[in-house]
């Protein structure tokens, strides 16, 4: 087995286990910590897929900024099992069954999709993940969505400050 294959399987198992632990762990703080492990696994996948820029951005923005925000808010609220009302068993069972139905549907769709049969990923070649090509494309064809997203950020910032000041 080649080295990339071993890394791929390791990262996949790590991502699946930590995603399950995010949902299953009782304490929200542990949940956030498992989510950080998940983000590192997904960043490894991006590097394997030759998307180096997205890997770095994923690590900085998600694992660095968003998760710290989550951790701050959860620690600020001091949640624990005694004060929070728990969902009853039937609601959990219903959720598991409906989520399982969606999973079965997606798996059967992927098995039927003829567009991806026989296609292969070639890991070593390709230059689209480099920051040079991404930047050129971002500021030529996608410059209007880029500017709109800056306005979106501004409105989100103003909204968070207004809500927080009440």
């Amino acid at each position: 087995m080649a080295a990339t294959q071993i890394i791929f399987w390791f990262l996949s198992v790590l991502a699946l286990v930590s995603a399950l632990m995010v949902i299953l762990s009782k304490s929200p703080v542990y949940s956030v910590l498992w989510l950080i492990a998940l983000f590192f696994a997904i960043s490894g996948h991006y590097i394997l897929l030759n998307a180096q820029f997205l890997a770095i951005v994923n690590m900085i923005v998600y694992a660095g900024a968003i998760m710290v925000l989550f951790l701050f808010v959860i620690m600020l609220m001091n949640l624990n099992n005694e004060t929070e009302p728990q969902k009853n068993l039937w609601i959990q069972l219903t959720g598991a069954i409906s989520g399982g139905c969606l999973l079965m549907l997606l798996i059967s769709l992927i098995k039927q999709a003829t567009e991806i049969h026989g296609k292969r990923l070639i890991f070593e070649n390709g230059t689209i993940g480099l920051i040079e090509n991404l930047g050129k494309s971002l500021f030529n064809e996608f410059v209007i969505p880029f500017e709109i997203s800056s306005v979106l950020f501004l409105s989100a910032m103003v909204g968070a400050v207004v809500i927080g000041k009440k």
Partner: peptide, 26 residues
């Protein structure tokens, strides 16, 4: 290359959404 740029915009929207959502939760 559009796929990777789309991922970039999804990250932008997620960051904005998280900041507002956590403010509402607080």
């Amino acid at each position: 290359i559009e796929g990777q740029l789309f991922v970039f915009f999804i990250m932008v929207v997620a960051a904005a959404e998280v900041s507002v959502g956590l403010a509402i939760i607080v």
